[in-house]
């Protein structure tokens, strides 16, 4: 199983070859509360590291999701359109957001590993 990386914005990234799957962490979904809508980027969209890529909405508020890495969106999770609550129930699995074909794998080195992310969250 590929190693998971994390951002300070509470996204997780799992890389398979040159494609990265992106989602939000369990901590993030807990902070958001019940997710009622997710707006995802269309396949083919170019995203830039730290540029806005998606929107996740809870009952109360809308939050932006940033692209953790630069590249081209190759797939969005269509299951979230009908069942956005997957983000709450299975954030690290069925609640994934989108996949990016990476244009600069060097950006990966700036992300946290699981232990570093856990330390980061514990300090919040």
């Amino acid at each position: 199983m590929a190693e998971r990386k994390y951002t300070k914005e509470h996204e997780w990234i799992m890389v398979d070859g040159d494609v990265a799957t992106v989602g939000i962490t369990d901590y993030a979904q807990g902070q958001l509360g019940d997710v009622v809508y997710v707006e995802l980027p269309a396949a083919g969209k170019q995203v830039t590291q730290m540029g806005q890529a998606a929107v996740v909405e809870s009952v109360k508020a809308a939050s932006e999701v940033y692209a953790p890495l630069t590249g081209e969106v190759v797939e969005a999770n269509g299951a979230l359109a009908d069942n956005p609550a997957l983000v709450n129930s299975d954030p690290a699995g069925a609640g994934w957001f989108f996949k990016i074909k990476l244009s600069n794998k060097g950006e990966l080195s700036g992300l946290m590993d699981e232990a570093a992310y856990k330390t980061f969250v514990d300090g919040l």
Binding site: V36, Y37, E39, E57, A61, A62, A81, P84
Partner: peptide, 9 residues
């Protein structure tokens, strides 16, 4: 009532 699922804030 918005159509679809996207809330309008």
């Amino acid at each position: 009532l918005p159509e679809g699922r996207a809330p309008a804030r």
